[in-house]
Design a protein around this nucleic acid. Structure first.
Length: 609
DNA sequence: GCGATCAGCT
DNA sequence: CACAGCTGATCGC
């Protein structure tokens, strides 16, 4: 959960992802994505009032985020104060002190963050240097090197500070299987199940938050079907998602939710209450997407684990792993790093300690005149196991897209052999200062009380927070600011109209209990641990490389091509009663902007806009 | 009655 | 394991 207080020290008159307290006085607001923990204060009456009296204060976000925001009536009043910005398109914004009339110009660029639909990072360039606010992100190793706007010519831009999603910035989360790998595992489980009969159905136990959509689109594509969800309303202007979701309950993959969905499952009903039309009992398995991680030296194992007679956990992460974050930071080489998440099991007090340590070492000598590394393309998948997994990928046609509606494009030349060192597994981020940018209570500011050893807050074993947040200075760090040359457009407050299509959710039929006879050759277990290479035999049901031949060629390419050649229009499926699917004519305003960057890549990057 | 906060749950 | 967010209890205004 983000504990970022909302402001960056370089540009304190703007607020990001926090809208309460001091942030009420901001001259501009930025919302990185539509998750509640980044929207604190956003529906506050105080803020609403302020907007009504302001001529210049606006909220800036991506088009998709604006759409999702306004979809919630509680935030509808933002309509006229929200300015959506295109991705990767530097935009100049005037920060105006409305009392004095003073003006400051800043250039902001939205970069895809891969966290959930609409999620972006904000790159700010102005008189106090370049700063990158990441929001929450899931980027793969090498993704930063493919972001044009992080570069100036052939060089990486100088970044003064990175305000970092540090959710998994801890070596314990060294590796999280890539989205591609996780998807393969999930798709295989689902494929094996739903192919048995039309009564074999899958329930994806997803939380009430944006971010699972790429799962729906890819599974929909893979199995030439749609996924049942509670509502389509939020996606009405997003055809690339919309075509893979439905409110028709008669499909085999469900991601519908109900407050008592677990009870429903016990009674062999889906959360939508549906059962087969002819009364035949459904055969339901549930799959719960959840984060799985593996240590540095842990041999990566399976991405799907059986947790019960008909329940599974499948690897899924909204956030970058330690090694992905490390790669990101190593590439950007910012002068400062400000974690926006208090690490798991750590207290604010500990973070405060870190700040003190950082402050002490902030001004130690750094060699001058060292150029930043020149821009080098790196492979997008460079972890050992991913390499194993995708061995032979070149031999098969490009996989179908995994991203929802935006993808990073590989813009640069293929990797230059031997030129770019991989981040050594035991290497710490280099040349970086870690500081605190999180909010703190007065009480917790008191860092006299040591939490040595027995502290309640340190529940987890493993390396200490300080161990990997100790600032280190290496020879190639930089501390100069260079002027970035970028073409800039000015903002023109625009409005997207958003008609709302009410969506109703209907009930409900009974199905008798019948959930035996799972026919895959799997065994059940309640084993819930991980990182235990040797103890997983009874729990693991799928191997990551299971769909590869000995040649390393991925199977199913024919089937995929077949699937890909079909469209959702092949399915004439009635909607949930009283629901209304948005018309395609309604759409697109949005996607005109997004789609231009939608070029297919062999290794698509799962950047969900 | 409303919002903020927290515990509990998933 | 954690995430993101809901529900319900409690408190203060």
């Amino acid at each position: 959960m983000s504990s970022f207080a909302g402001r960056m020290k370089e540009y304190p008159t703007i607020s990001l992802d926090r809208f309460d307290r001091e942030n009420l006085h901001a001259q501009a607001y930025f919302l990185s994505h539509c998750h509640k923990d980044h929207m604190k204060g956003l529906k506050g009456p105080l803020l609403k009032r302020k907007l009504q009296f302001s001529r210049t204060v606006r909220l800036y976000c991506s088009f998709v985020t604006k759409e999702l925001l306004l979809n919630n009536p509680k935030y509808a009043f933002w309509e006229e104060y929200t300015v959506p910005l295109e991705l990767e398109s530097p935009t100049q914004i005037s920060l105006v002190d409305e009392a004095s009339g003073e003006k400051q110009e800043i250039v902001v660029t939205l970069l895809p963050a891969g966290h959930c639909p609409g999620s972006v990072m904000f790159l700010f360039e102005g008189c106090h240097g370049n700063v990158l606010y990441t929001g929450d992100f899931r980027l793969a190793v090498g993704d930063a090197s493919r972001m044009e706007q992080l570069h100036s010519g052939s060089r990486v831009k100088d970044i003064q500070s990175v305000y970092l999603d540090s959710t998994f910035y801890d070596p314990r989360f060294y590796q999280i299987p890539s989205r591609e790998v996780c998807l393969r595992g999930i798709a295989e489980l689902i494929g094996n199940w739903i192919s048995q009969s039309r009564y074999h159905v899958v329930w994806l136990n997803c939380k009430a938050a944006y971010g699972y959509e790429y799962l729906f689109t890819n599974l929909g594509e893979e199995f030439s079907t749609q996924v049942h969800v509670n509502s389509l309303n939020m996606f009405k202007k997003m055809p690339e998602i919309l075509s893979y979701v439905t409110t028709d309950r008669r499909c085999q993959i469900h991601a519908c939710r109900h407050p008592k969905d677990e009870e429903f499952l016990q009674g062999n009903r889906l959360p939508c209450g549906s059962t087969a039309a002819d009364g035949t009992p459904l055969r339901i398995i549930s799959i719960k997407p959840s984060t799985m991680w593996f240590g540095e030296r842990t041999k990566k194992t399976n991405v799907v684990i059986k947790t019960g007679a008909s329940s599974y956990r499948a690897c899924f992460s909204f956030h970058s792993s330690y090694s992905e974050i490390k790669d990101f930071l190593s590439y950007l080489q910012p002068v400062n790093i400000l974690p926006s998440v208090v690490p798991i099991g750590r207290s604010l007090t500990e973070v405060t300690h870190i700040r003190k340590r950082s402050d002490e070492t902030m001004f130690i000598y750094k060699p001058l005149g060292v150029l930043k590394r020149s821009r080098v393309q790196r492979p997008s998948n460079n972890s050992e196991s991913d390499n194993e997994l995708f061995e032979g990928l070149d031999l098969v046609p490009p996989r179908k897209k995994i991203s929802m509606n935006q993808e990073l494009t590989e813009r640069v030349a293929p990797p230059v052999a031997g030129e770019e060192p991989q981040v050594a597994s035991d290497m710490q981020p280099v040349g970086l200062n870690f500081m605190d940018c999180t909010e703190s209570n007065g009480e917790e500011e008191d860092d006299n009380e040591e939490e040595e050893g027995q502290g309640d807050t340190v529940k987890n074993k493993g390396p200490k927070w300080e161990d990997f947040f100790t600032p280190e200075v290496l020879s190639d760090s930089q501390n100069s600011q260079s002027q970035s040359c970028c073409s800039v457009r000015s903002t023109s407050p625009s409005r997207a109209t958003g008609s709302q299509t009410p969506e109703l959710f209907s009930e409900e039929e009974e199905t008798p209990d019948n959930n035996k006879g799972f026919s895959l050759s799997l065994s059940a277990s309640n084993h819930s641990s991980q990182n235990l290479d040797s103890h997983l035999d009874d729990t693991l049901i799928l191997h990551q490389d299971q769909n590869q031949t000995s040649d390393g060629v991925t199977l199913q390419s024919e089937q995929e091509q077949l699937s890909a050649s079909q469209t959702s229009s092949d399915f004439d499926i009635p909607s949930t009663p009283e629901s209304k699917a948005p018309q395609t004519a309604d759409l697109l305003h949005l996607y005109r902007n997004c789609n231009k960057s939608l070029l297919s890549t062999k290794r698509s990057l799962l950047v969900n806009t």
